[in-house]
Design a protein around this nucleic acid. Structure first.
Lengths: 162, 162
DNA sequence: GTATGTGCAAAGACTTTGCTTTTCA
DNA sequence: TGAAAAGCAAAGTCTTTGCACATAC
């Protein structure tokens, strides 16, 4: 099956949308595709993207990063997120839409998808007379420490969170 | 039950949190409380708040509006929303938390709440090992045009629109 | 009286835009 | 070659902050 994070496949799709396959575009796509597997590099912001691109030996202007992610978003290859941090974060739009759980303590962002949730949202929207075009579900949460609620057993340590 | 949109009640709560009951604070609270019933004035942004305050015959600096809503948010009286419009919007935190449906065409924002949705979200979070602290559910949607000109009876279900 | 709040203007953070040069098809 | 993209700096938005003055408790 076509790997939707394969750079050539992505480039091809870009071309199909009339974009020029420039060095910058390639590098940004590669950085985004890499992020798919990287630890803390999913959902990069523009600065992180620029750094990732430059780490590949390529210089790129911030304005170009902005323009590229805007284009990629326009054609549906990238999703732009506005979490509560003030800046936009980007991510390859892997076919399956998904929601996010943000770990308040660490900033980690987990992806998830739940069909039942979609269904309920649609039902609610329908009840209000609307058809959902796009949704944003973000759960801001803290890790559940299975034993955290037990009577305190002060032992000097202080379990690292995170 | 105490009317949580009564200005005096709100002021009292502010005092309890150490805020000074200034003219500005009163006016902003009044503007927010009014918005609860007003047509297009729910979820005002700072500019709209400033206008609402000045419409009441009071001059206020934008910076003061920002400072006041920040304080009110800090003490839990106001909720700050970051919809996809780029600017922050504010709303009295009426006890019942609720989610939003944004009409893409008109910009209207409808409030709703659905217990089943909460439940599913909690289940999903738990499955990931997390406990939800705060959530953000925004449905961006378009109006479903019911074919004819049927008399609108949009009050089905438990649709308190609040 | 003293800690807070206020206004104003300046500064900040993030993003967009104008314009010239470069690059891709 | 012609149209789109890149670089750079300037400008735009929204929001925060420093500071002198005013105000509530």
């Amino acid at each position: 099956m076509a790997d939707t994070t394969d750079i050539d496949t992505l480039l091809q799709e870009c071309r199909a949308h009339g974009l020029k396959a420039t060095e910058n575009l390639r590098a940004v796509l590669a950085a985004l595709a890499e992020g798919v597997r990287a630890e803390g590099m999913r959902h990069p912001d523009v600065e992180e993207l620029r750094r990732a691109v430059e780490a590949r030996g390529h210089r790129i202007a911030l304005a170009s990063v902005y323009r590229i992610v805007a284009q990629l978003t326009r054609v549906g290859i990238v999703e732009t997120h506005h979490f509560e941090t003030g800046k936009s974060r980007y991510e390859l739009a892997k076919g399956q839409t998904h929601d996010h759980l943000v770990d308040i303590d660490t900033g980690d962002i987990l992806d998830f998808h739940d069909a039942a949730m979609d269904e309920i949202e649609e039902r609610v929207a329908a009840r209000l007379g609307y058809r959902i075009v796009r949704r944003r579900v973000e759960l801001y949460a803290v890790r559940m420490e299975p034993r955290a609620t037990l009577p305190i057993t002060v032992d000097g340590g202080e379990g690292e969170a995170n």
